[in-house]
């Protein structure tokens, strides 16, 4: 009996010491973006009516069809920073941390990207998210937790934003989940957007960065200037059925119109076969 107890005790001790072993990870530093993934979308930007590969619903499509690029000339729109879910598409990023010197616990991570210099805070101290009447911001309210070597972040309280820079909307009811993991000097940043208003499935994208200690985030003091005179209160947009540019992208790339109109089915590999069986676009979207 004593032998059995000894074996059980030894087993318990071993189990106690055989949990997962994690490397120490720090995300702090200056990171240069690697834009090999989705380069046209991230560089020059999407074209009008280019919705393929996104799990959008009819409401999102309807709203994007009404969007006019001239909206960016309206004063209140000129200096908008990219929201937290769109920011990783661009430029490098600086990540730094606040450490409690007494406990050595990380209180928060912060990120800062070049475009409009939005500073984002990811709270690591276990604080709850604020109530529904709190201010919503471009970067939202983020809390993080380590899952092994991976930092998982939940973000709420985002302002209404966009899935693409061609008017595809993302509502303020969206929730952003992110996973950050570091492999040597490479940082992988995965974003998952869930939006009950404009998406039928989560929208997932990954972005890669390389450690670049020489990278400097430049100051971006945006100046609001009225350069397009227009009647007071006018907001540029297209009335339903009147946007003449919606089929240009499909025609330019010899794609079926249905494919570029987006929707969850256009995200998956089997959709390639459906595209092959479809006729390319030859007329406008009405």
């Amino acid at each position: 009996m004593r032998t059995i107890h000894s074996v059980l005790l030894a087993g318990a001790v071993l189990v106690g010491f055989t949990g997962p072993v994690y490397a120490q990870v720090d995300l702090s530093g200056e990171w240069a973006a690697r834009q090999h993934e989705d380069a046209p979308e991230r560089g020059g930007g999407p074209e009008v009516g280019e919705y393929q590969g996104l799990p959008i619903n009819d409401a999102a499509r309807f709203r994007a069809d009404a969007w006019s690029a001239s909206l960016w000339t309206v004063p209140e729109h000129q200096c908008i920073p990219h929201p937290a879910d769109y920011g990783p598409n661009f430029s490098g990023v600086r990540i730094w941390k606040d450490v409690d010197p007494v406990t050595q616990e990380i209180v928060a991570y912060h990120t800062n990207i070049a475009w409009m210099n939005p500073v984002r805070t990811i709270w690591m101290d276990g604080r709850p998210h604020p109530g529904p009447n709190a201010l919503h911001t471009w970067e939202g309210f983020s809390t993080g937790r380590w899952e092994g070597d991976m930092l998982t972040v939940e973000t709420t309280h985002l302002k209404a934003g966009y899935l693409r820079r061609n008017g595809l909307p993302r509502s303020e009811k969206a929730v952003l989940r992110e996973h950050f993991f570091r492999t040597g000097d490479v940082l992988t940043w995965i974003s998952i957007v869930t939006d009950p208003v404009y998406l039928t499935e989560p929208y997932i994208k990954s972005r890669n960065f390389v450690l670049d200690p020489g990278y400097q985030v430049t100051l971006y003091p945006c100046s609001i200037d009225v350069e397009v005179p227009r009647p007071g209160g006018e907001i540029p947009h297209y009335l339903p059925g009147s946007n003449p540019f919606l089929s240009d992208f499909a025609m330019k790339h010899n794609l079926p119109l249905e494919a570029v109109r987006g929707g969850a089915s256009t995200m998956y590999p089997e959709y390639v076969e459906r595209v092959k069986a479809s006729a390319p676009a030859d007329r406008g979207v009405r």
Binding site: L71, P81, P118, P132, A134, L135
Partner: peptide, 29 residues
């Protein structure tokens, strides 16, 4: 850069700033 600034207390709904008012103004217009 269109962040923060003047706070707007709406008749109903959450605390807001200029960007929120602009988004709402766009919708109504």
């Amino acid at each position: 850069n269109q962040q923060g600034g003047t706070l707007v207390v709406p008749g109903h709904g959450r605390l807001s700033d200029e960007a929120d008012v602009a988004d709402y103004r766009d919708m109504v217009t």
